[in-house]
Nucleic acid binder design. Structure first.
Lengths: 336, 336
DNA sequence: AATAGGATATGAATCGATTCAGAATCGATT
DNA sequence: AATCGATTCTGAATCGATTCATATCCTATT
């Protein structure tokens, strides 16, 4: 049933070596032979067997991507970027969503190791470093996505969250807000603490007195955003902040929902709102939400490139790529 | 560098056949041997080489998923369902997003064929049937997702769009709306025409006179939703519809945005709004949007199961699985 | 003690693409 | 015609897991 390279060789009247050469190093083959092989391939409908190829050559045409939150449009955009770049190289992406579950994270790393992927892109959740080291010792490199690699032995591609936090709050201050609340969590996520740190810098540098409070939530979801917003509105009116800085766009969407009262939209007149990531849904909200843009597709694309380079030259020293964020101003932070 | 089954055999003092038996048919191996093999595996850090396995046995541990719109949360949910089910079987998903581009669609099918995937899940865009037939002749089955297979030779898993359209409009009528506009397109998408057909049935069955108009848009995106909403509001007030039925949630989000005027939210008091798919973002909108729920994760999970069954028994006759949709009522269709 | 029969274990053959040392072919030069 | 070098082609060996015919070991029965 399956057509093998041997069948093609017979059909074309050449040896298997020649067929392989036509496919892999056409410059070393005469035009006539190449021609006959190609027609034989067409006639028989031959398709390369990737398993045999991988077994012999050790070169893999798949890359694994372990994502910690498949629900978050930001990660979808990152995957898209990686996928787009991968397809240019004839590489396919093995996709694993861990949903913030360490055991799933481990399972996918095991699975990808069995598959002998070319490398792994991962936005890590648990402590995966031991396992990543093990993969590396088996010749499988990993690149961290949306997480600064620091002094680890792994390359990373991420965005400067501190700068992003700072830009967000500087913008709020510049548009006249003075009582700012940050909404995000959990507090052991590096992205969250970085964004807060950036916000603090902006507050400290401000000319006027600016108040910054931190409203911690257990997860960065729409639901937690709604709940946090309700808590704010439950206060006496004069204790309301005049601006909310959400740790990501999902939280911002939740906050926005909570700020519609009796058909009146409190954003931006009563309270300004800014998110982080700049996913499509920030722009799509009922009141378009200002956000700190991460170049998500570029992150994915870059991570894949770094991975391919490293897998080609294992001697390469890990490098940390950090992109600057960008302020995107929309109606939710309009001046009153 | 790489540890092979032979190394394990040496370490455990048994033959390679025995190691293989421990891994694949443990019942035919003595407890002692199994024990020694397992410790050897641990000690050496052995990982099965999937390429060798695939080459010999012809069984693949990957399944391809070709998605036509990676931006749409609905498809993400479907992928999640499939992925979750796959992980239970030790199967990984090769992910390909076509972004409504036939050439990408073809590329991914080729790539997946080279990878000798166990089978392919696909939400088709272009005319892929010839290629799917070719895959099938090479022993690779395909299951259509979110698309009724009809009389084709392929199984499918989808939702009854006609019923969904009907439910949506019956609900609008029941809540007192009489001038209904459907917003969706393009008109050659089966999902769209089905939903309109369902809407017509509801209108025809209504006791009162109900008006149904169709506002065609070129794509089901947020942007097109916004534009369509603006066009509606540009009419003289008395020609406004009193309800909008969006062909999917993305369009509904766009419509909602266009219906916020000067901080006043026209939904639901002036105009009711209902979407389709019931993605997380419908519930997360500033005014939570009623929607016709598709059991997205279940669709993905089921599609994967059907695929596995078919790939195990190639004689199985293709079957069309159709799930009923479900009405989810939220604030956007509240009674005035 | 001999032997049958079940339970275990063995290892050579196999899958298909790639590689590379050696063979064949061809032209040009002497 | 002989020789050399370049170009092109060949085919056996290889990767690692699985399979299955065969061999070995045990236990129970006569």
């Amino acid at each position: 049933m399956a057509v093998s390279i041997r069948d093609v060789a017979d059909e074309a009247g050449v040896s298997v070596g020649t067929v392989s050469n036509v496919l892999n190093r056409p410059e070393s083959v005469s035009a006539g032979a190449a021609e006959r092989v190609m027609t034989a391939i067409d006639r028989l409908g031959y398709v390369r067997n990737d398993a045999a190829r991988k077994l012999r050559g050790g070169v893999s045409t798949t890359v694994g991507f372990v994502v910690l939150d498949g629900q978050n449009p930001f990660f979808n955009d990152v995957v898209r970027g990686a996928e787009d770049e991968a397809s240019r190289h004839g590489i396919a992406i093995l996709y694993g969503n861990t949903d913030q579950d360490s055991s799933r994270e481990r399972m996918y790393l095991d699975l990808f190791e069995e598959q002998q992927v070319r490398g792994v892109l991962i936005s890590p959740y648990g402590d995966v470093f031991p396992r990543l080291e093990r993969l590396r010792s088996h010749g499988i490199r990993a690149v961290l996505v949306d997480r600064f690699g620091g002094t680890s032995r792994f390359s990373s591609v991420s965005v400067d969250s501190v700068a992003g936090g700072r830009m967000a709050v500087e913008h709020l201050i510049a548009t006249g807000r003075r009582r700012i609340a940050f909404v995000g969590g959990p507090m052991d996520m590096r992205q969250v603490t970085d964004r807060i740190a950036g916000a603090r810098v902006a507050v400290d540098n401000a000319m006027d007195a600016v108040d910054l409070e931190v409203l911690a939530i257990p997860a960065m979801t729409v639901e937690e955003g709604v709940a946090a917003g309700r808590r704010v509105l439950a206060r006496p009116r004069r204790e309301w902040p005049d601006a909310l800085f959400a740790a990501n766009d999902l939280v911002a969407l939740g906050l926005l929902q909570s700020l519609v009262v009796d058909g009146r939209m409190l954003v931006p007149d009563e309270i300004a709102l800014i998110g982080f990531d700049d996913t499509a849904f920030a722009a799509a909200a009922a009141v378009p939400i200002s956000s700190i843009r991460q170049p998500s597709a570029t992150i994915g694309r870059t991570a894949l490139r770094v991975l391919l380079e490293e897998s080609e030259d294992p001697e390469l020293i890990p490098r940390q790529t950090v992109f600057p964020p960008e302020l995107v101003i929309r109606r939710s932070t309009a001046v009153r």
